[in-house]
Amino acid sequence: MRTTRDRIRHAILFEVIGLALIIPLGTLLFGLHAADMGVIGVGSALVAMAWNYAYNLGFDRAMQRLVGHTRKSLPLRVAHAVLFEAGLLVILLPPIAWYLGIGLVEALVMDLAIAGFYVAYAFLFNLAYDRTFPLQSWTDAAVEPSA
């Protein structure tokens, strides 16, 4: 399993790169002022960092308990990303609607568009992160002959 330090590095890199992408994209897509998209982006990132840590820790612990390792197959990576974003959507919907002074349906449409971006981004980021920072147990398993 990943260490706390590694999980913190993961969360910070994920959010910094995500903000660099979503603020200008969101400003263009939703017609918001950059400052408003920045508030939504940074506020969402802070919530997402806490959720990211808790969600990934719980997901990895569940995998470790159920299957004895934390290596994720392609279908599991897709499920992992979708479930993460679904939980975050539920958490962020009310504050976004309140901040922008819009209805929940309008906020849901905006949140779904942002979540769609982040599902794809999370999948690609996590794949790249795992390849850039593999766990030692993964590299050991790759070179050990199977019985």
Rank of each mutant, 00 (worst) to 15 (best):
P24D: 10
G116H: 01
F133E: 14
M1T: 12
G103N: 10
L25C: 11
V90A: 14
R2G: 03
V47Y: 04
Q64H: 09
Q64M: 09
A122F: 08
I8Q: 13
L74K: 10
N56Y: 08
I17H: 04
L25K: 10
R9C: 04
A107R: 02
I40H: 01
Q136L: 15
A147C: 02
F84G: 04
L112F: 03
N126K: 07
Y121H: 00
L19N: 00
A147G: 15
M1F: 05
A107C: 06
A97K: 07
A107L: 06
T4Y: 13
A107S: 10
V16R: 05
G87S: 02
M63G: 11
Y118V: 01
R65L: 08
E15V: 03
A11C: 07
R2I: 08
V90Y: 05
L88V: 14
S137C: 09
G101C: 06
F133H: 10
L100P: 12
V39I: 15
M49L: 06
R9G: 00
L100V: 14
E15Q: 08
L89H: 06
S44H: 00
D36T: 14
M63L: 14
W51I: 05
R77A: 14
A34C: 12
E85R: 03
T132I: 09
L19I: 11
I40V: 15
I114N: 02
V105R: 02
Y53H: 07
A120L: 07
A48N: 06
I91C: 12
L124N: 03
A107Y: 00
L92T: 10
L124P: 02
A128Q: 04
P24E: 12
F117M: 03
L108S: 03
M63T: 05
E85D: 02
R71K: 14
I12Q: 06
F117G: 01
L19Q: 10
L112D: 00
V105S: 04
A86P: 03
A81V: 03
T3A: 13
V82F: 04
W138D: 15
Y99H: 13
V90Q: 09
I23T: 01
I96G: 03
M37R: 12
V42P: 01
T139S: 15
P24R: 12
L25E: 08
G116A: 02
Y55S: 11
V39D: 08
I91Y: 03
I23E: 02
A79D: 05
V16Q: 02
H10P: 07
L100Q: 09
R65D: 05
F84D: 00
W138Y: 05
F125H: 02
A141H: 06
W98A: 15
L57C: 07
G26F: 06
D6G: 14
L19R: 03
K72V: 15
P95S: 03
